[in-house]
Design a protein around this nucleic acid. Structure first.
Lengths: 189, 189, 189, 189
DNA sequence: GATGAATGAGCCTTCATTCAT
DNA sequence: AATGAATGAAGGCTCATTCAT
């Protein structure tokens, strides 16, 4: 009937899925990704069964919550490489974006530290999507002589991930950005 | 009354405390700092009530478990400053020591990420004891012109702590030491 | 209105009912008669609401599933009485048929043990349909002097039913047929 | 201190274990062996955790509930063989005892039909304890020429078990004893 | 002081059943 | 009529914590 159609029935199902994603995102921030299923359901205003229908395992929910943002972050890579004044500027900007995503937005980083078994999926989402993006930027920067250290995109992205994960324990005296900047400086020479 | 006196009763109390510390240290490594109280008691061969008598809260136990090692790490600072070939060498060595402590030995870092509320005590132990030590080394290095970046000991110690915490998710392709080295390089220039 | 008419709509309703019966029969075998409604619906390729429309209670479904076979078993009685070499041979053959039905085919026997309240309907189906059949055979055998024990058809059919029900816990060392044979022997003298 | 002592502490623990066994026996009769843990705990007047402490798995509880009675039944075998007027009389009496145990006392038989996986333990308890007893009686009867059919003790005990299990669906028109008698008659000739 | 039995809140998960579409 | 999404009661299990012995 229209460009938005996805079968009549799915109207409320989609509404619920959306509500669940929003609720989960919000609850993850305050209570962590191990938050009780009940709380997420309550926050979303749905029954618990509805969570299990849409996201059979907790990992499914977590991945879904963050997928959009990971995608956005990935897509920004090539763009920045085109618009920044230099590859290293693109590197700085993309790393900032990634750090923003990690630190500011959703408490995602904590997700990766708890339950490392179950969250392989999340880990994979990250790595699969973002490592190639950073690899391109890094490669450009290296070709321009702006990065000399022998460091892989994987190594770098994990370092940044861990730094931001730790920074969630907020303390005005600690500035994750500064740490990241020092790290990038260390890559340059 | 005297400094050495500790009534007969105290003898097994002390034995128990020691047993609990050892047991907790061991269980923390395998099961994490959130390990069931029962398991720790069982490992120590004491009743659960005994844990609560000696360490009313989990944080008390965690702090006690790591205090010795934190002390050892702190005491190594001045020593290294005296024996190393340069302040920056001392910095490198001490940071390695600290990272060893964090990474290799005890899964301590994870402790700081979980339950950040309850582990203020642990956090404080770290900061109170180790920040001054690193500050001295850092200051010496700065005086020698070997560190130029505007970075505080607190900033640095947290950065290293977070990096090591993240590195507990073991992966041969990731090398926390390399990250730390790059970070220190970034401090030098 | 006519005896053959069943408006067009009824066509797929019937198809669905058939599909449900087949699906239920199949699922009952593998998962027992307490199988989740959802699984039956899925197996039949219909929605769950459709099950409830056609078979408001689980008992309705169970009864419907087995009615055909019970009928077939009932109809075999008079036939066997006509073809067998003696009434007691007919008895043996019919009891074998019944045991086959119970044991081999469908796990039906278990149905009668679980939820005895809700399965009165199933129980009734059995008794109403099969007891008279067995009664006739038994009576013929008694008249021929081939059964002397004072045992009713109901008593006998329940005994066989229970024996087969128990035999569903498969064990090569146990042979329900042997038990039934001994029981019939005991009826003869 | 005394012949009843089993360490001071266990006083209430034992009281609880006893209460649990009684409660479970009673609840098993009315609700079956799949009765909710919560209900058993409530009936016993203890917390749920107490059940899990004493009987980690449901099978443990079920076995414990019935062990006494199985023992009593087993011990009656040799006795009856000594006191009965003939081996076949002993057989009849022991089988009656066993059937009493199964039918009248505790709904145990149902236990063996549900959850056949988890109740291997119960099954084993039965077989290990009772089959040898029946085997002795059967052997005596066979030696006396009072049993001629080629039937094993295991075959017989399972047959009786299944018959009694089925008889729990009470119906005045059905008499499990009669079925068993016919079965024994069938063994004799 | 030490013990460990008991408690019970809290979480996860499954499914029968309803009902909006 | 059919669908299948949603609901929520029900039950299993784990552990932190208390307290009688």
């Amino acid at each position: 009937m229209s460009t938005t159609a996805n079968s009549a029935k799915r109207a409320d199902a989609r509404r619920n899925e959306r509500a669940l994603l929003d609720a989960a995102a919000s609850v993850f921030v305050t209570d962590g990704v191990d938050a009780p299923v009940r709380r997420i359901a309550a926050e979303a205003g749905v029954g618990m069964g509805t969570i299990y229908r849409h996201f059979p395992s907790r990992a499914d929910l977590v991945v879904a919550v963050y997928r959009h943002q990971v995608d956005a972050c990935a897509e920004a890579g090539p763009t920045l490489l085109g618009t920044a004044t230099s590859p290293s500027a693109a590197l700085r900007q993309w790393v900032d974006l990634f750090a923003d995503f990690l630190t500011t937005k959703h408490g995602l980083a904590a997700a990766m530290r708890n339950d490392p078994d179950g969250f392989t999926a999340l880990h994979a989402l990250f790595l699969d999507r973002l490592v190639p993006v950073l690899a391109d930027i890094l490669s450009a920067a290296r070709n321009a002589g702006e990065v000399t250290a022998d460091v892989s995109a994987y190594q770098l992205i994990r370092a940044i991930g861990d730094i931001c994960a730790g920074a969630e324990l907020v303390d005005p005296a600690y500035d994750a950005r500064l740490t990241i900047r020092l790290l990038l400086d260390g890559c340059r020479r």
